[in-house]
Simulated scan of single mutants.
Amino acid sequence: MAVDRHLVLFARKPRYGVGKRRLAADVGDLEALRFARASLDRLRRTLGSDPRWTLWIAVSPDRPTDWTAPARAIAQGSGDLGDRMSRVVRALPPGPVVILGADTPTVTRQDVANAFYALGRHDAVFGPARDGGYWLVGLRRRPRLHLPFDGVRWSTEHALADTMAAMQGRPVALLREQEDIDDGPSLRRYLSVPGRR
């Protein structure tokens, strides 16, 4: 029997003046909203129709969820990022899970396929981000579930190192480095590539 693969996109419903606060501080609320909408739309189009996995959107706020269709919705709930990722991982049906944020629009189907492939031989896989965090985390979830999210200094340059240390020597794979779009300079670098305006 084949085990389902779960791809979870962590996303906040794009709304003016809500979310992407560091980016909005640099570029304004309207430009931050434009980026959030475009990034979420691109990721849903790129990743949502692939038959190799089921796309879930872990939503914040938890309601309404009508904006996630055709992806399946699952609530993030409260707490820090580690609490929310742990809650979502535990709530999903059996099978490996890959989580990524909606602020890395450069993620491709091949990136996701590489992550699931790595989970065939590793307990976890990470996509390192340029700022010391990570744009993707995947967990095998068999035979026992180990969640490495306690004690992580979120939104700092230590997030990846802290999470990897919490893996306690279990086998881990790394994907290519990408950049989260969290502030004005990262958005300008992203938009400097032709065809991204």
Rank of each mutant, 00 (worst) to 15 (best):
I181H: 04
L139Y: 10
Y117A: 11
V125R: 09
D182V: 10
L136I: 15
P194G: 06
G133W: 00
A166M: 15
R188P: 00
Q178A: 08
L147M: 13
R141C: 01
Y134C: 02
L191S: 02
F149S: 05
Q178V: 00
V125C: 08
A129S: 15
P143C: 03
G132A: 06
I181G: 02
W154P: 06
S192I: 02
T156I: 11
R141M: 04
F116Q: 02
R176M: 01
R153Q: 06
P128S: 05
R140V: 03
P128C: 03
D123A: 14
A161M: 05
G127E: 02
Y117G: 09
P148Y: 14
A165K: 14
S192G: 11
S192P: 05
A159R: 07
A173W: 04
R142K: 03
H122R: 14
A166T: 13
L139S: 10
S192D: 13
G138D: 05
D180I: 05
A166C: 14
L160M: 10
L175N: 04
L191F: 03
A129G: 15
V137I: 14
Y134A: 09
V172W: 06
W135D: 08
I181C: 03
R189T: 12
G195D: 12
E177G: 07
R176K: 05
L119T: 09
P185N: 12
W135S: 01
A124F: 15
L145A: 11
G138H: 02
D162I: 07
A165E: 13
G151L: 09
R188A: 14
P194R: 08
G138I: 10
R144W: 12
H146C: 10
R144Q: 13
R189A: 15
H122L: 01
W135V: 01
P148C: 11
A166K: 14
M164L: 14
F126V: 04
R144K: 12
R176H: 11
H158V: 00
T156A: 09
V152W: 05
D183F: 02
G195N: 11
R176W: 00
P171Q: 03
G132C: 07
V125I: 09
R140C: 09
V137M: 07
H146T: 14
L147D: 12
L191K: 06
T163R: 00
Q168T: 14
G169K: 13
F116V: 01
Y190G: 04
D131W: 03
A165Y: 08
D123H: 15
P143A: 08
M164D: 08
Q168G: 12
R188T: 12
R196L: 09
D183P: 10
D183I: 01
L136H: 04
G195M: 06
G151D: 15
G169F: 12
H146R: 15
P143K: 08
A129P: 01
A118F: 00
D131N: 13
F116I: 00
W154L: 04
L147W: 11
G151I: 13
P185S: 11
W154K: 06
V137W: 14
R141K: 10
A124S: 15
M164P: 02
L119A: 11
P128G: 07
A165G: 10
D150R: 11
R188V: 05
A159D: 08
D123C: 12
L174N: 00
R140P: 08
H158M: 09
R121Y: 06
A165N: 11
A161G: 04
A161S: 11
W154F: 07
R142E: 10
